[in-house]
Simulated scan of single mutants.
Amino acid sequence: MSRKLLLPVILALAAACQQAPATAGEVDVLAPAAARPAKEVPGLKTAVFAGGCFWGVEAVFSHVLGVKSVLTGYHGGSAKTANYERVGYGDTGHAEAVQITYDPGVVRYDQLVRIFFSVVADPTLKNRQGPDEGTQYRAALVPTSEEQRLVASAYLAQMKASGIWKRPIVTGIEGYNRFYPAEGYHQDFMAKNPQHPYILAWDAAKVAALKKRFPGFYKPDFTKG
């Protein structure tokens, strides 16, 4: 169900979580460097990631060097039901996701994938991340090119063989069809609402983990739009 419909419960949970220790829903591991680096020609590229609540996914990638823009929205499903209220019921086929525009001369697709699984999404969770549960919160790699698909497939196989994750990896690859931008108030959410209880409880730690795990890719400024 939508966080909007459960707002009183979410706010109470978030307030409590600010003082709580890390849980399985908080991601902070060092995923392996890709054995199969992306071979990308010069020029800006687009990538789509679904990893639970799009506020946190957007927040992390907005602090990555080489990322030029991050747009929150909905992957999968139809245009008719691509809105926050409807997607929140979990029966539309959509996933909350972000669409990233990046410069592969600064950060390659495989490096974005590594960051994603290190500090954004737990690949062992099915249809949930952090405090959110439902098909709309599933984690998925959504390649927008054949090269991205090859990189994603190789990296998931590498992750499964690495032994880093003790539970089975269930995150998969989903075909790209269309990305539907989310409502305006969801865009640049952490930059606009840094003291929001949900952000403080779940997403600020992801940005901190990015800075700790990948100092060479971290930038302090939030890339908007």
Rank of each mutant, 00 (worst) to 15 (best):
R3V: 14
K4I: 15
K4D: 12
L5N: 10
L6Q: 09
L7A: 15
I10R: 04
A12E: 04
L13Y: 04
L13K: 13
A15R: 14
A15G: 12
A16N: 01
A16P: 00
A16V: 10
Q18C: 12
A20L: 00
G25P: 05
G25N: 01
V29D: 07
L30T: 14
P32C: 09
A33N: 11
A34I: 03
E40T: 13
E40W: 00
P42W: 00
G43M: 03
L44C: 07
T46D: 03
F49N: 03
G51N: 06
C53P: 04
F54L: 04
F54A: 08
V57W: 01
A59H: 09
S62Q: 10
V64T: 09
L65P: 02
T72Q: 08
T72I: 08
H75Q: 11
G76A: 05
G76Q: 01
G77L: 03
G77W: 02
S78C: 11
S78G: 15
T81Q: 14
A82Q: 07
A82G: 09
Y84L: 02
E85F: 14
E85M: 13
V87F: 08
V87E: 02
G93D: 07
G93Q: 05
Q99R: 15
G105P: 08
R108I: 05
R108K: 15
Y109K: 07
D110W: 01
L112A: 11
L112C: 13
V113F: 06
I115Y: 06
F116A: 12
V119T: 09
D122N: 15
Q129Y: 11
Q129E: 01
P131H: 08
D132S: 12
D132V: 12
D132Q: 12
E133R: 15
E133H: 14
E133W: 10
G134D: 07
Y137P: 09
Y137T: 10
R138K: 12
A140K: 04
V142K: 05
V142A: 07
T144Y: 01
S145G: 10
E147F: 02
E147D: 06
V151H: 01
V151M: 00
A154K: 05
L156I: 11
L156Y: 02
A157H: 07
A157C: 04
A157E: 09
A157K: 10
Q158F: 00
A161V: 02
S162Y: 04
S162E: 01
S162F: 00
W165S: 07
W165Y: 04
K166Q: 10
R167N: 11
R167P: 03
V170R: 02
V170Y: 01
V170N: 01
V170H: 00
T171Y: 02
R178G: 03
Y180G: 11
A182Y: 00
Y185C: 01
Y185V: 07
H186Y: 03
H186M: 05
H186V: 12
D188P: 08
K192Y: 04
P194Q: 10
P194A: 13
Q195R: 15
Y198V: 14
A201R: 06
A205F: 04
A205H: 06
V207I: 13
V207G: 09
A209H: 05
A209R: 02
L210A: 10
F214E: 03
P215K: 13
K219C: 09
D221S: 15
T223H: 02
G225M: 03
